[in-house]
Write a protein that binds this DNA or RNA. Structure first.
Lengths: 137, 137
DNA sequence: GAAGAGAATGAGAACCATTACTATTCTCGT
DNA sequence: ACGAGAATAGTAATGGTTCTCATTCTCTTC
């Protein structure tokens, strides 16, 4: 992780380490406000946004844009492993979900097939499942 | 279209017709500001947001959340047809793509299966394929 | 270890898309 | 045409995000 940031000319400071750790502990993308709360206010919101910005440039975190202008961040897949999202259209929460190997192979095959048909050089795919989560059921 | 709105107890007024027409003319999701410009300022921004809101409730229009808190709207899939996206990581373009019936059925089945495993009430799915488009190949 | 240069931080102000409010205008059934 | 409720438009308020800048920290070089 530190090496990755160094390669981008970015220092791995205590504050940024805290942000990365906060994202690593706990599941699913979180907003700046949620991270502020999770770290007990130890990191000012303005610093959070700046840190998240540079981490995004370094390809360490990935933003997800949601309703009401809320942006949630999570660690990139090279860190967390490949996964998909369950998006609740009611409360806006986003949960990570890892699917079975055979299911993933099936998705992969489909995506490759579709890409080939469209003469598109596929490198990745995003599958988001929308609906209502257990809490909003 | 008018019938659809009536069923939701919503009037199909001149202003709303203008909004729908603006979305129908021209491709791709557009933001409130872009629609305001496209209609030569004939519809106030506040009215645009309210209209888009009720159209969304009626399932006529679908929001698409993007960077910097920008929300872009497009007509719902029952109007445009169900489709997926080819996202070019090079030039950032997003192309619509319709996949075959059997492929779509396969995606549907997978999504339902995954949703059931997670006790998630599935209503829709989004499949985005990332890679390089023909132009950036 | 000390010094200097540049990066990073924190507090708050500024920005801007979106929402809320309110008075006025319009629609539609009677 | 009338009246009740819906829709509109102008403007103020909201809130997530970005910007500014003075201060602090980090790393490199002596």
């Amino acid at each position: 992780m530190e090496r990755r940031l160094r390669e981008h000319g970015i220092r791995y400071t205590a504050g940024r380490e805290t942000v990365v750790a906060a994202l690593a502990n706990g599941a699913g993308p979180r907003s700046a406000a949620e991270l502020h709360e999770q770290t007990a206010g130890s990191i000012p919101v303005s610093s959070l946004y700046r840190s998240l910005g540079v981490l995004e440039e370094a390809g360490v975190v990935v933003p997800h844009f949601g309703a009401k202008g809320l942006t949630r961040f999570e660690l990139a897949e090279w860190f967390t492993g490949h996964h998909h999202h369950l998006v609740c259209t009611d409360c806006g929460s986003v949960d990570d979900i890892e699917i079975g190997e055979d299911q993933e192979r099936e998705v992969q095959a489909l995506v490759d097939e579709i890409g080939a048909q469209a003469q598109f050089h596929v490198t990745d795919h995003v599958l988001e499942i929308e609906g209502r989560c257990v809490r909003c059921r």
